[in-house]
């Protein structure tokens, strides 16, 4: 009995290892092809580079030039970091107010915010991009305001639920000690919000970083984020350069892998919390 169980377990581990390899394989194949000449990719994507087909970093150099990869990386980083920080600060403030001041107005505001979570982007994309245009928000700073507006639903929902579980007594004590409301929020509440803030930050960062349609429609004609730049490589040329495409896919994945390696625990915890509550 014990031996047969050990055998099955070993077999299961081998099976899982094989599955893992299968899961990683598509990325390895892209990596492999990024070093092959562009005309050798579509024909034989599963062959390793040979002396005939190996081109070194040529695809990377041409891809980086064609789509302006480093400026795209810069825009993506800038927009993601500052959108997430803005969302964290302002939606946590709003959530605290909505959770502590319970009037008909605040309830309506809360429900309208929650309602926005179920509205698909296509519903508002046309009118929203027109409004962004009229208000001159079509730049990497203006788009942060748009992200705050769109991210508000989920973020307020998560902060609000968390704040409702914080006992009022803590704040009452702070008030008796003479704290004004802003002091109460920044010195007392904000530190308590740390775990939920990490969850909200992870969820928003994943969304903003990978978002394609919103940045395309709002700032796409002047500023290209990484997803927009990758897609541009596809559409902008008569015959597409498969080599450059492969190289840019690799460069687009690297920041994500690094982020995942550094923040793995927080990401998985955040995603589970987001799924269970959302």
């Amino acid at each position: 009995m014990r031996i047969s169980k050990r055998v099955t377990n070993t077999l299961l581990v081998i099976l899982l290892a094989a599955l893992t390899a299968l899961f990683i394989l598509p990325i390895i194949i892209v990596l492999m092809n990024s070093f092959k000449g562009q005309f050798y990719i579509s024909a034989e994507p599963f062959k390793l580079p040979s002396p005939d087909t190996f081109v070194g970093l040529e695809n990377y150099i041409s891809g980086i030039q064609k789509i302006g990869f480093f400026s795209a990386l810069g825009y993506s980083l800038f927009i993601t970091v500052f959108s997430v920080l803005t969302i964290l600060l302002f939606t946590s403030m709003a959530s605290w107010y909505l959770a502590r001041v319970r009037t008909r107005t605040t309830k309506i505001i809360y429900y309208v915010l929650i309602f926005s979570m179920i509205v698909p982007f296509q519903m508002v994309m046309f009118t929203m991009s027109k409004i962004a245009n009229v208000l001159h928000l079509e730049n990497p700073i203006g788009i942060i305001l748009i992200y705050l507006g769109f991210g508000a639903g989920l973020s307020v929902f998560m902060f609000y639920g968390f704040i409702r579980s914080i006992p009022l007594a803590i704040e009452e004590a702070a008030e008796i000690d003479g704290c004004t409301p802003p002091q109460r929020f920044f010195y007392v509440i904000l530190p308590i919000l740390k775990p939920i803030s990490i969850t909200v930050a992870v969820l928003n960062a994943m969304w903003v970083w990978n978002d394609y349609l919103l940045p395309l429609l709002v700032i796409g004609s002047k500023y290209r984020t990484i997803p927009v730049a990758v897609q541009y490589l596809q559409g902008g040329y008569g015959s597409r350069d498969m080599g450059a495409l492969m190289a840019m896919l690799v460069l687009a994945i690297i920041p994500i892998v690094l982020f995942y390696a550094l923040m793995q625990k927080h990401i998985i915890r955040g995603v589970v919390a987001g799924a269970v509550k959302g």
Partner: peptide, 22 residues
């Protein structure tokens, strides 16, 4: 008394990016 400070930034962004377009 602090509604403007706590609510306004999120509400303005929400109205511009979502409510009016919707």
């Amino acid at each position: 008394k602090y509604a403007w400070l706590f609510l306004l930034p999120t509400l303005i962004a929400f109205v511009i990016a979502f409510l009016v377009p919707f």
